[in-house]
Design a protein around this nucleic acid. Structure first.
Lengths: 200, 200
DNA sequence: GTCTATAGACTGATAGAC
DNA sequence: GTCTATCAGTCTATAGAC
């Protein structure tokens, strides 16, 4: 406990290196030797900090899920009309993306693989809780007559969730497009669509 | 050459089994022993049909990319206004999804890993060609004043591409929602948005 | 906190019998 | 077309020196 993050700086640094590799190359395809080499140490030394490779991805994912859940709840509690809440949820996703981009990618890419292990059963629980939050907002908008009734709320949620998660693959924090800029484009597409109403 | 698909039935069957495993658990995480076991044979027997594990995924991906490219070109050549072309591209994606769902998932999930091998350099070429087709349609719509000018065409393309690719994770060909139903929902969200114009 | 050295399991792939 | 048997390499993880 030597830094505000609640862990030693070295530990957090190693986790960040591992997370990026897991996200870029896949969890199974990333070896502990690669993680160690990226950190400038040998693989055996990693086990002074972590119990196993699984424990590393576990810690990365839990930290992300906790913050994402808090951000989603905050967005809903901020209130407003359904559209404002929906925009808030999208913005909350991109706010968390800035800090947890690798974790978002890992969750998106590896759920199918990790869900097979009992250790990671909490991933599905978290996904269901996230879906509940989004679907509630989408249903509210529908019943108030501001969201299209022909759209399936669960499909709609997955649609936007997967779009955002996939953003991580090309998003560059030092690039031309900030997370906030991307968020505003996504809100535009998602809420209002690509086609200008009445143009055809 | 004993079947209309251009390969022996057995070969196609083995490829289908492998593709599903690659899509569900990841290419690196899937072992040749698992593929063989799913097919009811032993791992050594696989090498009578295929040169390597890489050759298997290679064949799966090439078959998909060829059909997808033809489908996209057909959609654009069908003509019509920009919105019709855009809808055609989305429908073409879902038409191909029915036959190549596992290949779509593999391409989406493993590009980051496979792109590292020279053997799979063609994946990036194909992605660029697909993007060119979509962006041309999106730009045309913009310049004709039917698509929103504030939207970045490349971002817009990736947005819908990744949404569709992610669909494979929950799409069930024997489920309540057909690929066509999903396509129409996606067209609605993507073209017109979730929010009903003038409702707020 | 890192290194050396290695155990023990698993991996993709091969050779030859049937 | 499948099986048996196995090789050579790689993987995660451990034990103990420094």
């Amino acid at each position: 406990m030597t830094s505000p993050e609640g862990g030693s700086g070295r530990r957090a640094q190693l986790l960040s290196i591992a997370a990026e590799l897991f996200a870029r190359r896949g969890f199974a395809a990333t070896t502990v030797r690669e993680i160690a080499e990226s950190a400038g140490i040998l693989s055996g030394s990693l086990y002074h900090h972590f119990e196993s490779k699984e424990a590393m991805v576990d810690e990365v994912l839990r930290a992300y899920l906790d913050e994402q859940l808090a951000a989603f709840r905050g967005a809903v509690e901020a209130g407003g009309d359904p559209r404002s809440k929906l925009e808030g949820l999208i913005r909350a996703s991109f706010t968390v993306l800035r800090k947890h981009r690798w974790a978002m990618a890992i969750l998106h890419n590896e759920t199918g693989y990790l869900a097979g292990f009992e250790r990671f059963a909490y991933l599905e629980q978290a996904s269901r809780e996230f879906e509940r939050i989004w679907v509630r907002v989408l249903r509210e908008g529908r019943s108030r007559g501001v969201f299209r009734t022909e759209l399936n709320p669960r499909l709609t949620h997955r649609f936007i969730r997967d779009s955002i998660a996939s953003t991580v693959r090309w998003y560059n924090p030092r690039g031309r497009m900030s997370a906030q800029t991307i968020a505003e484009q996504y809100i535009r597409i998602f809420c209002d669509g690509v086609v200008i109403p009445g143009s055809t």
